[in-house]
Design a protein around this nucleic acid. Structure first.
Length: 427
DNA sequence: TCTGGGGTCCTAGGACCC
DNA sequence: TCTGGGGTCCTAGGACCC
């Protein structure tokens, strides 16, 4: 049974046709839980514990939303039922939905586990008009997978995305080209991609609350409110002038990992353990993608959410766990020294940017030099060799099969690693 | 009683080069 | 005689998105 289908279109479409679809699974994690366990259906549930990772629509009606602290969610909805995530199932079902989408076009851009853009302009002869394809997609995802999915269809990506948000839950909205302004103008600025709480507050203070007002505002005035680049972007989006194409297969620009720690003293032992774990995760993923990076960033969060970052760009690409851990350790110690007023920390993160492709040959062969950070040095090459054998053992026996001493012991993370892997973008 | 983990992009100052 | 202008890279911080 399909839900609401509001076709915001006239019968005859003129001009450019709305050939871009944005497909977005509704309350994805929560919907999967309700699919797998029928006793959860119709009940307010939240995936997570300390923080709400996803809330069912029954829970959303009470004001529970993703990212909210657990205690706060319980306060708003006393009957709220928390369930732990089944992360492998999310990945499996997300992939299954994606496979259905791919039946309709190869021009598909997956932007997260539960969301994708499709350009179905070339699929008319086989499958019909975009609106028909959207109906088929929604029916198949419902029948074959069992999940609700909302779809927006429009002439541009941004408008298609807004349409799918308006369509939720479990709906379809098609925006005909000649009715774009009529559709867009009354909607709140918050629906524009890139407008979060801070920007929304600034715009509201200037009396700008709808997308129509945003579109009519002069870029110069807007620049004074939100800055030059943001003003240009917001104007383009609000006027629906962003014509970027659906692009399959983008490359990631950075790879990182973080760990929330509760509230702990940053002893050398703790730093060694946590940074070892994080460096191991990041470096293994870099190697799996055959990539290296030149800039290492660390982030340290103190009690009260204040956070600082430190980064270092090195001449030679990094992909070895030990090298990454040493650089990160140095940066974190520096950050702690410069913030000596702070006692405990609540989070540590490592990420690597300035990514480059790493041909196997370049990684394996050493050249002269004795700087251990040098990938080409004998030390660097030896480290990579160790990492690579570890990678291959893990690929056969699972990631906890082997590891650096302190890393294996620290698998007591607060969040399961399966979930971490889920949140990664494909690179 | 502050709440996860993965990312992208922008700003702004300083160093350095021509 | 301390004065122009443009560009690139690095670093730190912040807003935002899923």
């Amino acid at each position: 049974m399909l839900g609401d289908e509001r076709v915001f279109a006239t019968l005859r479409v003129v001009g450019d046709l709305p050939s871009i679809l944005h497909a977005d699974l509704d309350a994805f994690y929560a919907s999967v839980e309700q699919l797998l366990d029928p006793t959860l259906r119709g009940r307010p549930i939240a995936v997570g514990g300390g923080v709400v990772l996803a809330a069912s629509y029954e829970a959303k009606r009470y004001g529970v939303s993703g990212g909210m602290a657990g205690w706060q969610a319980r306060q708003r909805c006393p009957d709220l039922l928390f369930v732990p995530g089944q992360f492998r199932e999310y990945q499996r079902l997300g992939d299954a939905v994606f496979a259905i989408l791919r039946d309709y076009t190869p021009a598909i851009e997956r932007i997260s586990i539960d969301e994708a853009f499709l350009d179905v302009g070339g699929s008319r002869r086989l499958f019909g008009e975009p609106a028909d394809i959207a109906v088929q997609i929604r029916r198949r995802v419902r029948d074959e997978i069992g999940l609700p999915i909302s779809v927006g269809a429009a002439r541009t990506k941004h408008l298609a995305k807004i349409a799918s948000q308006v369509a939720k839950p479990d709906g379809l909205v098609v925006v005909a080209p000649e009715r774009e302004r009529e559709f867009l103008d009354p909607l709140p600025v918050r629906l524009v991609w890139g407008v979060g709480p801070a920007t929304e507050a600034r715009l509201t203070r200037r009396g700008i609350t709808t997308i129509g007002q945003l579109a009519r505002e002069s870029p110069e005035v807007l620049a004074r409110i939100v800055g030059m680049a943001a003003a240009t972007k917001l104007t383009t989006l609000a006027r629906n002038d962003d014509l970027r194409a659906v692009r399959p297969g983008e490359h990631a620009k950075s790879v990182g990992a973080q760990s929330a720690l509760g509230r702990v003293a940053p002893t050398p032992e703790l730093l060694a353990e946590v940074l070892g774990h994080l460096a191991d995760r990041v470096a293994a993923r870099l190697r799996a993608k055959h990539r290296t990076g030149r800039t290492v960033h660390v982030r340290v969060r103190f009690v009260g959410m204040r956070a600082v970052t430190r980064s270092l760009t090195v001449a030679d690409p990094v992909a070895a766990t030990h090298t990454l851990r040493e650089i990160a350790n140095g940066l974190v110690r520096q950050a702690l020294l410069e913030n000596a007023g702070e006692r405990d920390i609540t989070l540590l993160a490592i990420s690597v940017s300035h990514l480059d492709h790493a041909p196997t040959v370049q990684l394996e062969l050493g050249v002269d030099g004795d700087d251990p950070h040098r990938l080409g040095s004998p030390t660097g090459a030896a480290r990579l060799a160790v990492d690579r054998s570890m990678d291959s053992v893990r690929s056969r026996f699972g990631r906890t099969a082997v590891g650096y001493g302190s890393v294996v012991l620290s698998e007591r993370g607060l969040v399961p690693d399966e979930f971490r892997e889920l949140a990664e973008r494909d690179g």
